[in-house]
Design a binder for these strands. Sequence first.
DNA 1: TCAAAAGTGTTCCGAATACACCCATGA
DNA 2: TCATGGGTGTATTCGGAACACTTTTGA
Lengths: 219, 219
Amino acid sequence: MKEQIIHQKISVAVDVLIFTIEDEKLKIVLAKREAPPFEGVFALPGVSLRESETPEEAAERSVLERTGIRNIFLEQLHTFGRVDRDPRSRTISIAYCAVTSYRRLKDSGISGSAGLYPVSGILSGELPLAFDHREMTAHGREMLREKVNSGGIAFEFVPEEFTLPQLQKVYEILLGEKLYKANFRKMIAPMVEETGNMLTGQAHRPSRLYRKKKGETNE
Amino acid sequence: MKEQIIHQKISVAVDVLIFTIEDEKLKIVLAKREAPPFEGVFALPGVSLRESETPEEAAERSVLERTGIRNIFLEQLHTFGRVDRDPRSRTISIAYCAVTSYRRLKDSGISGSAGLYPVSGILSGELPLAFDHREMTAHGREMLREKVNSGGIAFEFVPEEFTLPQLQKVYEILLGEKLYKANFRKMIAPMVEETGNMLTGQAHRPSRLYRKKKGETNE
DNA sequence: TCAAAAGTGTTCCGAATACACCCATGA
DNA sequence: TCATGGGTGTATTCGGAACACTTTTGA
């Protein structure tokens, strides 16, 4: 009852939104395109899906190429398939969200042409992107917001050891609102444990360092 | 810096989980495969993505073919891309969730070979499915559970006009737990409005009929 | 000694939980 | 008239919102 498996002329791409927080702003990794279409326009890191790899592996490869980072937090976002999204040929793109701490991104070193750009500028249209990458960014932004509370995605933005004020900042940036210190701490308490270390060198009382308590899902 | 756009030998399929509730059980539409691979095994309704259509349009087409239903509630679930998921050739599948009331499904008439089967039997392994369709079903089931509370997916399971006890049953089936009548009604009240009609003919007090109040997102 | 930010205890309020009861129908 | 499930008011509990306060450092 089904059509024959005639070979489709559809290409499959994998694009990755690599989120991080720098300078108290949510940013993503972009690279300027060096060839048409959209030559000179910023675009998300992406690769063409190989026959021998899964979409997730392709996403890892894309992250590795651009940032040198392995074992990054990665989650499938959505598959985008507008017919005219790529002017060259019919191409669908499986988009992934990745998250890393700014420290790790800086240590690995972003490869040459790539850089970090604020998400707000992309969504406002101030910084135009190639293809439907702005739409992808909007979806990714939304996914982060949803996952802050359920599932501790916030931990992916901070290093192994972090202070509670740092973590609270992450929540505030992702949610877009100021939180009450005392309440935030009560909420986060069951998910973290002290490392015993302190973060000194600030012009005020030092803060304790924590790590993510593993084993339990939240709540 | 990027590889040429050599043509990939990757096929793109679109599979749909058509959920409904019959006989107080969550069920989905399956059809027995009539050709290898997995000949004689049940599988989700699916189509091959055409060059000229979006994945969503393909999903709509798939639903229409199998059930005759148009304008069904449809949401992209996940893209599955295990390298060996299809023994014939490298194929990725964009999976969609659809939901409809049993009444509508019955009225449209499921086409010949297709039928309704309980999700529980699939997840338990009692009813084996072709390809990775069991994994898809598990994902879809999870998505429903998540969307019951945020975003009123429950309304998609009932007809235009429904009683609150009916709607409560949907919640209970999706969540897998019994709810308190009075509390459920308080929770649901801002989302519904009375139609003025009553459902009679039951061996007890008739229940009022409601419709989904539109305009507002939940909460 | 003072500014600045870390860190904590306590009150307040509203929403979810739980319970108790009344109502309308068919048989 | 009674069993059955529809429908509603009220007490209780729990968690988040909000506030007030103490602590510890560098300058």
